[in-house]
């Protein structure tokens, strides 16, 4: 059952990547897509596939996988079904970084992407600091509260900065906050691939510890896990994974929250390693599908990716929820 689900997801992701190569403002028949992949002649079709659509599709795969795995990790680490990277500082911090770059003209000191990434890191650091109790532990409830207040503070900063910005800067910042894969370049793909490979391997390596951490701090300690230290490591790995995506794709909501739930419903035995794999594949599939919809439904205009993931994902999630009741 599980093996079949994984194969279905792998095929789905592969199919969606292939479809993404052919579909767009200029429709390319699959045969032509196929030719461009092997033929090195500099045709416009080759340019579209190699320089625009392939990096974009692969970026979608990576962003979805990263957000899915990050959410799955955080939900288990914090033992809370609502935990997700965006609730724990990543999105707020990244958005503050982005509006500062776009709105205040800080962009001269590095790209919007760098600022967003740096903002995410700062916010995660703040959440970790605020979430500490007197004994130096970080109970899940404190971390979640810290994430929520950090997010609220970030929102306030964003509004203040945007209010002072030019319409162009506002538009740029808003577009970034709505998420998009349209700026995908090979260098972004390579960077994110490296991050996903390293951080993902780290999470997979710690998956058995995550199984036990999900039972709660005291029980995890009774089973030989240094609970706080391990939970902290998992938290940082998952947050970094999500932060790596905001630099290139902006904020793609919903994936980190809902995909892990669906993954758990598929895996069923609570095994974190399998949940991580399924959540990563499911995230990839959802982001690819949403991106296809975002750039074809109102072509040549693009719909905001972060909104489309929710528009597509929520009905599917509700259908799953009803079916599993």
């Amino acid at each position: 059952m599980l093996v079949r689900a994984v194969w279905v997801l792998v095929l789905l992701v592969t199919g969606l990547v292939v479809l993404s190569l052919g579909v767009g403002a200029a429709g390319l028949p699959l045969a032509e897509v196929w030719r461009t992949l092997w033929d090195s002649a500099e045709t416009p079709a080759r340019l579209i596939v190699w320089e625009l659509r392939l990096p974009r599709a692969l970026l979608g795969v990576l962003v979805g996988a990263a957000l899915g795995a990050s959410g799955a990790t955080l939900q288990a680490t914090l033992r809370n079904a609502l935990a997700e990277p965006y609730l724990l500082g990543v999105s707020g911090g990244a958005a503050v970084g982005a509006v500062m770059a776009a709105g205040l003209g800080f962009a001269g000191l590095g790209t919007l992407a760098t600022w967003a990434f740096a903002g995410a890191l700062v916010a995660v650091g703040v959440v970790l600091m605020l979430g500490r109790d007197r004994q130096g532990a970080r109970p899940p409830a404190s971390l979640l509260m810290a994430g929520v207040v950090t997010g609220a503070f970030a929102n306030a900063v964003i509004m203040v900065v945007l209010a002072q910005s030019t319409p162009t800067a506002q538009r740029n910042a808003l577009w970034w906050m709505m998420g998009s894969l349209s700026a995908a370049r090979w260098s972004d793909v390579a960077g994110l691939a490296l991050a996903v490979a390293v951080l993902g391997a780290g999470l997979l390596h710690m998956a058995r510890s995550l199984d036990v951490i999900a039972l709660g701090g005291d029980t995890a300690a009774s089973l030989g896990e240094a609970s706080e230290r391990v939970a902290m490591r998992l938290f940082v790995l998952a947050s970094l994974l999500a932060a790596a995506t905001v630099a290139t794709a902006g904020l793609v909501g919903f994936v980190g929250l809902m995909v892990p739930h669906l993954a758990r419903a598929v895996v069923r035995d609570g095994n974190s390693r399998r949940t991580l794999v399924v959540a990563a594949l499911g995230g990839s599939a959802l982001v690819l599908l949403a991106d296809l919809a975002a750039r074809t439904l109102r072509a040549p205009a693009e719909l905001p990716l972060g909104a489309v993931t929710a528009l597509l994902g929520v009905p599917f999630f509700l259908w799953q929820l009803r079916r599993n009741r």
């Binding site: 199984d211 709660g216 089973l223 035995d269």
Partner: peptide, 26 residues
């Protein structure tokens, strides 16, 4: 321990198998 609330349901056998955690590697 006195209290333990599971957040992710699993089968009893899978849960009891988590008791093997200290004996298992990564």
């Amino acid at each position: 321990l006195q209290r333990e609330e599971p957040v992710f349901p699993m089968t009893v056998r899978d849960y009891v198998a988590l008791g093997r955690h200290p004996w298992r590697g990564a």
